[in-house]
Amino acid sequence: MSSLKAEDFIERSPLYPLQQGARLATLAHSSIVARYGEKEEHALLQRCALIDLSNLPRVGFRGSDSAAYLQARGYCLPEQPNQAVRQQDGCLVARLSQSEYLLLGSLHDLGARIAVEESRWEQDDQRNYLLPRQDSHAWLQLTGNRSAEVMAKLCGVDLRARAFASGAVAQTSAARINVIVINAGSQALPALQILCDRASVQYFWGALLDAMDEFGGGPVGIDALLD
């Protein structure tokens, strides 16, 4: 596993140049950071940690028939815009407007279910249009009990748990770029899923790490999440 290199894969995270020296794991047709070093990462995960999930599949659907299409595919949908629902298999469905949905893959199946949704979609007479999100957005996860304090330095929206409960979605600006923030945390592990413009993610990654510094935060790999 330690001999894997991001350069061995055509599909790479836009952050891969910043992840040199990290131990990688295979993820379908790409790689993902398993751990950044020999240091213990679980404690960091609980306090303040940043995870790059950019290679995990995600996709969107929009249209007046999208809700019926996704329900027929077995998804449980949020009742209101700007809410998200965790599915039984771990993937996440966020509703971004009256008729737009964003599907985020789960680490448990390495995003396989969501990747299938993107590949099987075909245009027919239904008003249900595919929104490819793999190359438009990068996907980061900010975990730990200091997440809201970190975001307060970058973002005007109150993301503390009492104002931004689990399942809430905010489409807003953080560090001056557009982001989608989803509270996908649990009692066991507070977590914000953050999607931002893929071409800007090296800047955003640096801005987040800088904001996390005062809380002793840092990047972690997915091993800490999966163990």
């Binding site: 815009p81 700007n82 407007s97 005007g156 929206v157 905010a170 489409q171 807003t172 600006s173």
Partner: peptide, 17 residues
Amino acid sequence: MKILTCPLNGPRNISEF
């Protein structure tokens, strides 16, 4: 910062519009 209320997203900084 001025605040504008978006019908979809609620009150937000005017710089988001």
